[in-house]
Write a protein that binds this DNA or RNA. Structure first.
Lengths: 222, 222
DNA sequence: TCATGTTTGTTATAGCTTCTAACGCAAGCG
DNA sequence: CGCTTGCGTTAGAAGCTATAACAAACATGA
């Protein structure tokens, strides 16, 4: 699904190459959806594509390199989703539901971004750049929402944020908006990741209503 | 660390067996802390213990069985932590900080419980039983906290909970308490898992202050 | 048009992994 | 004291990642 980012090739060789790379990634996404990132096998992908084993190393230097590429595409996809929602004038609730749709559309893709980290792994710099894009879109939406006094209980942390706002990347939002963006991030991730991981199955209540309730408490002005 | 649950053996053979099992699990925890669950190698553990390869299969039927045992121990450890906090009269804030200490003490242990799920994997029934213990302790603490009207924004979901409370396991808590327990669970997990995964590193603010702010918004009565 | 260099695929191989099978030995129990 | 049970061994199958060496197809310059 999607991920035709390599399609701007010119020479027939580059065209073929980017096509094979896209095929490999498509199969990789299928495998990850079925068995998780730890169950991804380059050998199996190569066999599925009709070519045998090490041919795949012409297109991706290593298993880690392929997974890093998938992680990058996942970040890119989320950043585009957030940017589209922000530019279409969606409020906090709209952004939340765009996030939920994106997550439910491919849970393992969500976990590639926000799941269990591998202790040694360090993401490349451009991925942290995309993460900042995501944060910028979130800040745009939070800043456009009707301003509201932050909850008195967290006034101390909001004051702390006014002096530690490097992560906002120069965004001219008041500390209350920063606080609300962080609350959006942590709370939406909290309820979403537990739902995606299946921790709500068998509990009886409907997960989407819990999600909506958390969204509602995030936007008490409406 | 800990996990001497097999120590109530009698015959010298069982005694030796449970000792070796404990050694294996100790090495497994070390490996998981360093390389994550996907980097756990039975072969490497056996070599570290001086025995060679397949000898380990006398003690654990498979790699999955060992990991399942570690997951069970992680759940057990968290349930004990929650129960101890609840019985010692800790409030919601106390329970939250006990959870945070437990998580920071071994992040990969936390992710074994709440991290990325493997699509095929299904936890044994007794583990879901321990999960209910955790929920019961959380409900005890939330019920003992001073009662307070739920936020008006989530009144609809609280009403929904009054009719879908199977997961509470017969706990006689009013729906507002159930709502608060779910908010505790999802919000604490949200901020904690992002911190443990390193998503806050380099952002400038202090993660523990964000955690405290979320705890404070959870207990606005104090 | 022909030759040259690049790219892509192949097979072979090393080294790692999980896990089964067959065997020997030692320790505990009746 | 003998017999059973359990433990550890080596051998080996099947899988994986990754590298090396080689063959074929392709694109391009003379």
């Amino acid at each position: 699904m999607a991920a035709d980012a390599d399609a701007d090739a010119v020479s027939p060789r580059e065209r073929y190459r980017s096509q094979v790379r896209a095929d490999i990634k498509a199969r990789a996404w299928e495998q990850i959806a079925k068995a998780g990132a730890s169950g991804l096998s380059l050998n199996a992908i190569a066999k599925e594509l009709g070519m045998s084993g090490p041919a795949l190393y012409r297109y991706f230097g290593s298993r880690d390199e392929l997974i890093t590429e998938l992680i990058r595409d996942a970040y890119r996809s989320l950043a585009d989703t957030f940017r589209a929602a922000a530019d279409s004038g969606a409020g906090i609730g709209g952004l939340a539901h765009a996030l939920r749709r994106w997550a439910l559309d491919d849970p393992q893709r969500y976990f590639l971004v926000y799941g269990t980290p591998v202790p040694g792994y360090q993401a490349p710099d451009d991925i942290t750049g995309i993460a900042q894009e995501i944060m910028a879109a979130l800040l745009d939406v939070c800043a456009a929402a009707e301003p509201e006094a932050p909850a008195p209980a967290s006034a101390g942390f909001t004051a702390h944020l006014s002096q530690h706002r490097d992560w906002a990347g120069g965004h001219p939002a008041p500390p209350g908006v920063l606080r609300r963006a962080l609350a959006f991030w942590t709370r939406m991730h909290g309820v979403l990741s537990l739902e995606l991981a299946g921790h709500f199955t068998g509990m009886g209540f409907e997960p989407d209503r819990l999600f909506d309730a958390e969204v509602a408490e995030l936007t008490p002005g409406r």
